[in-house]
Simulated assay, not measured.
Amino acid sequence: MEQRIIIEMGMGNDLHGMDYQKAARRAIEDAIRHSTLPIFESTGLPHTDMRVQVTVAVQEPDKIDPEALKSGLPRGQAEVSVTKGGLNIPNPETGETAVVATAAVEAFLPSQAGKWVQT
């Protein structure tokens, strides 16, 4: 059994290139910058025990390469899924569309029940 140890949300955008991949990468980076996991240094657990589940939402999910997004994840065994969401904001004056992506980054460890002793 796994236990979720953290969930962080992030937002990223590409204002001029309509690059969904760039917006998604930035959303993941934003979520990761909001977190730290000192549990590994404190307990000696290996990072490889952690499963990282990333969910990215953009208006055109087929324009995302989930495998490429894995490379930006610094630790754990990563899985990336993509769904429809996010936001496209057209600018009628320029014809450009700003792309907004959202991401949720979740980290899971095998159950630690009974392994910790409070002193």
Rank of each mutant, 00 (worst) to 15 (best):
M1Y: 12
M1N: 07
E2R: 08
Q3K: 12
Q3W: 06
I6D: 04
I6H: 03
I7K: 14
I7F: 05
M18W: 02
D19T: 01
Y20W: 14
Y20G: 01
Y20P: 07
Q21P: 07
A24W: 00
R25Q: 15
R26Q: 14
A27I: 12
I28T: 08
D30W: 04
A31R: 02
I32D: 05
R33W: 09
R33I: 02
R33G: 10
R33V: 04
H34Q: 15
S35T: 14
T36L: 03
T36H: 12
I39H: 05
F40T: 01
T43A: 13
T43F: 14
G44Q: 06
L45W: 11
L45K: 00
L45S: 02
L45N: 05
H47K: 12
T48P: 00
T48L: 01
M50Y: 01
R51H: 12
R51F: 04
T55P: 00
A57T: 09
Q59P: 02
Q59Y: 03
D62E: 15
K63V: 06
D65N: 13
P66E: 01
P66M: 05
E67H: 11
L69Y: 02
K70P: 07
G72F: 11
L73A: 05
L73Q: 03
P74Y: 13
Q77Y: 06
Q77S: 15
V80S: 03
V80F: 02
V80Q: 05
S81E: 14
S81M: 09
V82Y: 02
K84Y: 14
G85D: 10
G86P: 03
G86V: 12
L87I: 05
I89C: 02
P90C: 03
N91D: 15
P92Q: 13
T94V: 12
T94Y: 01
T94S: 15
G95K: 08
T97M: 11
A98W: 06
A98Q: 03
V99F: 06
V100E: 00
A101D: 03
A101S: 13
T102H: 07
A103I: 14
A104K: 07
A104L: 06
A104H: 03
V105W: 03
V105A: 11
E106F: 09
E106N: 07
A107P: 04
P110R: 01
Q112L: 11
Q112A: 09
G114D: 05
G114W: 03
V117W: 08
